[in-house]
Design a protein around this nucleic acid. Structure first.
Length: 212
DNA sequence: AGCCAGGGTCTAA
DNA sequence: TTAGACCATGGC
């Protein structure tokens, strides 16, 4: 498998998979779901979110007791830890008056450090929140990103190397980061899970054609 | 049955 | 600094 030219990755994904999509327009929904989806199938997150419905807002969620919140998110697994994290995250967002505008007074790195200091929020979750909730250009490395790169012949020492690689490739526009991440998700869910469907993957077909 | 799913924390060496 | 155990449910 030849290594894809890095500068063509983005346009290739775009043209192959069409218009990119966004997580959610509501910042709190992004935060909430970003925690729920940790090592969990997205379908469970969607069902849980649907069952919460209109109550998926910081005021209502924060008013719940720890036990009530745990019960609410139970289908997503790791519910004790996630309930604690969601509570801490909601409290943190409250310090910004639960408003995206209020976060604009901070730099991206300041917000990133604040998020990382919350127990239960690691790099991926922090970057998801930065991009989709607060429109900051922070590249998101997740399992799909790593699998995608490995399958296409790249090998990086660590996630930081991956972040630098793509950061040098994309503009400073947060939209690009969100769109790119979602394209990798779409691609990964269809062709690049642990049980791969590589022979049907348009990108791999494209690479093989170049070999001939 | 057992593996897998858009992780993160803690500990041992 | 890094590898491995652990957290937990639902779908296939």
């Amino acid at each position: 498998m030849p290594m894809l030219n890095a500068s063509k990755l983005y346009s290739l994904l775009l043209t192959t998979y069409g218009e990119p999509r966004w997580w959610s327009d509501d910042p709190y929904t992004v935060m909430f779901q970003a925690v729920l989806v940790q090592n969990t199938a997205w379908e469970n997150v969607e069902k849980t979110s649907a069952s919460i419905g209109e109550n998926l807002n910081p005021e209502t969620i924060y008013a719940l007791s720890q036990e009530e919140l745990e019960r609410l998110i139970k289908p997503c697994g790791f519910f004790k830890a996630k309930a604690r994290t969601i509570r801490a995250l909601t409290e943190w967002y409250g310090r910004y008056n639960c408003s995206r505008e209020k976060t604009e007074s901070k730099t991206m790195n300041e917000l990133r450090e604040e998020l990382l200091s919350i127990k239960g929020i690691g790099e991926e979750t922090a970057d998801v929140i930065l991009v989709y909730a607060f429109y900051r250009p922070s590249f998101i490395v997740d399992a799909y990103t790593r699998r995608f790169l490995r399958r296409f012949g790249y090998s990086f020492q660590n996630d930081e190397e991956i972040r630098k690689f793509f950061t040098s490739l994309l503009s400073a526009d947060a939209k690009d980061y969100g769109y790119f991440h979602w394209l990798l998700l779409d691609h990964g869910k269809t062709y690049c899970r642990k049980k791969p469907l590589c022979s049907f993957c348009p990108l791999i077909r494209l690479c093989k054609q170049k070999e001939d």
